[in-house]
């Protein structure tokens, strides 16, 4: 491997470290090392440095396990991808793991103390025997447990979104072909929109909540009592169940409630369960 390849891979992988000075210190160590060893950009590096991935991982683990960052508030989490399943997983550290097909460099990410942005550029599908072949990538975002996120926006076209134990103020989740599964969320305003796929949400929802799907059911399992919500449920085909009691298709419980739920599905049932 050439020095410049080593440095560019290292720089890319160390991007998961949120503290910029930690990243710079590590990169500087290696770039000084090569200079002092007389290894230029196009020179081949010693064999023991070939495993740049494990070197990066060791640095990242060291920083994460011994870090000054106590900030558990994230301003923005933005995920804007095309062919990918998105998983947001509670963890004791912040990390982004992207599992994509080989040579798929379409996904890029950027993590700072305040903001995480993950994006995918459109790539042309590979045609095999006339069929367009697109392999879905898996994007796993590990978020420090109990961190509070001000704004989350997650969009994918072909793929679902799955998250658990998220706490946020404003959340917008959209998928064209794939479901949205949000487990144990605590949120202020939540917006979920799917064309082909189901929506499942459980947790404590406050503020203004909207769920829309064309082909798929909507299931909510909520902590608050139904009296605390203003509820509007609409569908054309399929049943509507609110806590097994039968309600009219349009139901508005208390107009003075500060929390609202609007759920719409064309072909699919809507189930609301309150604890």
């Amino acid at each position: 491997m050439k020095k410049k390849e080593f440095m560019s891979i290292l720089e890319k992988e160390l991007n998961v470290i949120r503290d910029a000075s930690e990243r710079e210190n590590a990169l500087r160590f290696y770039s000084e090392y090569f200079m002092d060893a007389g290894i230029g950009d196009d020179d081949v590096i010693p064999d023991e440095l070939n495993n740049v991935h494990s070197i990066a991982k060791e640095i990242i683990d060291g920083v994460i396990n011994n870090s000054d960052i106590t900030n558990s508030k994230l301003n923005e989490l933005i995920i804007d991808v095309i062919n990918a399943n998105v998983y947001i997983i509670p963890s004791d550290k912040i990390e982004v793991v992207i599992e994509a097909s080989p040579n798929d460099n379409s996904i890029s990410y950027n993590i700072t103390d305040e903001k995480i942005v993950i994006e995918q550029v459109k790539t042309n599908p590979i045609h095999i025997f006339g069929f367009a072949k697109i392999k879905q990538a898996q994007i796993k975002i590990y978020i420090k447990r109990e961190s509070f996120i001000e704004n989350i926006k997650a969009e994918t076209v072909n793929g679902g979104i799955k998250a658990s134990e998220l706490q946020f103020n404003n959340g917008s989740f959209e998928s064209v072909n794939g479901g949205i599964f949000l487990e144990n969320v605590e949120s202020k305003n939540l917006h979920c929109k799917v064309v082909n796929g189901a929506i499942y949400v459980s947790g404590n929802l406050n503020g203004k909540n909207e769920f829309e799907t064309v082909n798929g059911s909507i299931n909510c399992n909520l902590v608050l009592k139904k009296e605390n919500y203003d509820i509007l449920l609409q569908n054309i085909h399929g049943a509507i169940n609110v806590d097994s009691e039968s309600f009219r298709k349009e139901y508005s419980s208390r107009s003075e409630a500060s929390n609202t739920i609007r759920a719409e599905s064309v072909n699919g049932s809507i189930n609301l369960h309150f604890n």
Binding site: A26, F29, Y30, Y33, E48, S54, G62
Partner: peptide
């Protein structure tokens, strides 16, 4: 130093 360096 099979696969690492001493930075960490």
């Amino acid at each position: 130093v099979s696969e690492s360096t001493f930075y960490p």
